[in-house]
Design a protein around this nucleic acid. Structure first.
Lengths: 201, 201
DNA sequence: TGCATAATTGCACAGCCTGCAAAATATCCT
DNA sequence: AGGATATTTTGCAGGCTGTGCAATTATGCA
């Protein structure tokens, strides 16, 4: 990778950092692109070279995570069920630094997102890209056509739903570890919560 | 209900109708609030009395559907599993006129939504409200606290995911009945697609 | 050093969305 | 019916987002 690309990635990170800081400090309603650009030492116009919408600088970068995770899903031991493979990768690679490094920051971001319908919508849009990528990976695992077979998309969307539920719960009450919430969610699903003929699971 | 409220609902429908027509005709990028207001015989300013964002006039009104469906979920026979109860209500009440009356129109709307990240994001945001409502209903069925127990939210989000997968597939290829896609999705889930120790389901 | 490529910036501008106050309209009560 | 009251619609002013375009600046490489 050339210096150019590295610098762009650095700028991108700087913008995201500044945006989150200011959003926490000022609240989303008082946050302007001008202020973000200022804090990141770029012109307002340049902000839009990096992000198509103001919100995109604030929500988790699911698209990047998806691309990074996809090969790992494919590479999981073949005897694992599709959901379990996705689960394993999510819990192992901590896609959004939700658990490790930036735990506090990630929590602040999620709280911000949950409180703002506009941000939430944008974040869910980003998750849709994640789902599509997961679906591709699952299709590869099952060796089926993801356009023809419903199962890859289904497994991918359910996995993403489990993630969302865990993160949402964690956002509302971070006294419990996110990891444990993730485990609980996936355990329920793999344990037959949805299976017919059960009245509670 | 007084004349006033009925008239507001009528206006709301008129705006939504005009918005969809124009979006199909012009494409989203050339659609302005001014044009919608014009077609609906209201002032541009009044448009924003009905919808906070331009996009909200175009996506499916999931919040309304959620409120309408919730009691029906609670009222399903108690021996049914939570997912099955939700499934039954979705397929029985056809929340978004996806199957019956406005099938053609609903399909056009969904295609529009799938093609536009901005619209899709907004639609997913609306689905989040639907999920929350479903979760409440499921919690009531299970007689648990939806803040404490993960299962209601999990079942609700998974059901919504199944709906989304079915609708998305239908949008890409409407030669198959949406009803059949819904059945297929829920059958997979209830049939143990996600259960541990299965390599394909 | 100098050339080619790519990123940054300024400028102009259309369109979204909001607050506010005035005008129009509906509802209610006598 | 008629007038007081509440609600809705509308116009206006204005800030902010987001985009196209062209000029400028920075980078990578021979």
């Amino acid at each position: 990778m050339g210096l150019r690309e590295r610098k762009k990635m650095q700028t991108r990170r700087t913008i995201r950092g500044a945006a989150l800081d200011l959003a926490i400090e000022l609240g989303l309603e008082n946050l302007t692109v001008e202020a973000i650009a200022d804090a990141a030492n770029i012109s307002p116009r340049t902000f839009f070279n990096y992000f198509a919408h103001k919100e995109d600088a604030l929500v988790t970068d699911a698209a990047a995570a998806a691309v990074a995770l996809r090969p790992h899903i494919v590479a999981r031991p073949p005897h694992e069920s599709p959901l379990h493979a996705v689960r394993a990768v999510i819990t192992e690679y901590d896609p959004f630094s939700l658990v490790n490094a930036d735990r506090k920051r990630a929590l602040a971001r999620q709280k911000l997102v949950q409180e703002n319908p506009r941000l939430l919508a944008r974040q869910l849009g980003a998750y849709a890209i994640l789902e599509a990528e997961f679906a591709q990976a699952v299709a590869e695992r099952l060796d089926v056509d993801p356009e023809a077979d419903l199962r890859p998309a289904l497994v991918a969307s359910v996995a993403a739903a489990a993630m969302r539920v865990a993160v949402t719960r964690w956002t509302a009450d971070d006294s419990v570890q996110l990891t444990e919430l993730l485990v609980a969610c996936f355990d329920e699903l793999e344990g037959g919560l949805l299976v017919a003929g059960t009245d509670t699971g």
